[in-house]
Amino acid sequence: MIIAIPVSGKGQNPAVATSFGRAAHFLMYDDETGQYKILENAAMGSTGGAGIQAAQAIVDSGAEMLLTPQCGNNAAKVLAAAGLRIYKTDPGLSAMENLKAFRDNELEELRDIHEGYHGH
């Protein structure tokens, strides 16, 4: 299973980005091999609908799980259609630490879905 996390850097243990749609990159973690790769977020500089484009990229990548601090309702709609599940990251932890917390069942499903960008 591939787990996606929006991150702000590409280093060894990057911080979780503050937003989903406008994150710089996504860390794509394969929990079977323990390998990960970095996916550039092409939607980062989008003038509108960044969440939707980012969600489309995550869906297309084949990820099944998303760990994120927050998610807009537009992006959530795309992710839900593809059957992705969304968990809320712990703001005190890095991306790798959040992955561990997720495996240890310490993260909760994201319930607060905020209003999306309105494209204007």
């Binding site: 609908g49 939707i52 484009q53 969600a55 869906v59």
Partner: peptide, 19 residues
């Protein structure tokens, strides 16, 4: 305007983003 997306074999339309 990113008003369209494709997931799980279906086209998803975002009405409020459509111009």
């Amino acid at each position: 305007f990113s008003a369209l997306a494709w997931a799980n074999g279906q086209l998803i339309l975002f009405e409020a983003l459509c111009h």
